[in-house]
Each structure stands twice: as C-alpha cells, then as structure tokens.
C-alpha cells in the first residue's frame, strides 16, 4: 500500500480514495469500514476519525496487513 502509513488527528473527517491493480476487500480495523476495490474501480472510504490509536488496514480475505492508519489524540 502506498503510502504505507496514514496519519490524521482525532476528529478529522477522512476520505480515502483507493486504486488497486488486484481485486480485494479492504478492511479498516476497529472502525470496521469495508470496501471492495479492484482494477478499473474508483473506491472511496469515508469516516470520522473519532477513535485514537493505530489501526490496521488489511485485505479482508487473506487477512494480510496492507498498511496502517494512525489517529493522533487531540
């Protein structure tokens, strides 16, 4: 995943625009946001960063970690 780590502040409204050359199901831990992505698809995840911490973004099927979302307090 590029960038491998996304860093935001608590309370930010975040939009992730995702492009992928392989079809997969993106899953953001704890926020439990899921989105199917794939070649030719324009996918968007939207959420408010109200939980602080580091959250894995993974490929839901293989459960392999793609990257990390970091939400800083304050």
């Amino acid at each position: 995943m590029s960038p491998a780590e996304i860093s935001v502040s608590e309370g930010d409204r975040v939009t992730l625009r995702v492009s992928s050359d392989e079809p997969m199901e993106l899953h953001l831990h704890r926020y439990d946001v899921e989105q199917e992505v794939g070649p030719g698809q324009k996918a968007r995840l939207r959420f408010e960063a109200d939980l602080t911490g580091r959250f894995e973004i993974e490929d839901h099927e293989s459960e392999s970690e793609l990257g990390v979302l970091q939400v800083r307090p304050g």
Partner: peptide, 24 residues
Amino acid sequence: RTRRLTAAALSFSLILTGARPALA
C-alpha cells in the same frame, strides 16, 4: 495540539499493488 473546532477534511489516495502476505 488543541481540538479543532471544525474537523479537518482530509483525503488521501491509496495505491494498492497486490497484497503481499505481511509478517502477521
């Protein structure tokens, strides 16, 4: 850092290139 009164709207573009089995 003080809490912002209006939450910033941030957007990122993520590029995924073939999930590698990460060191779980």
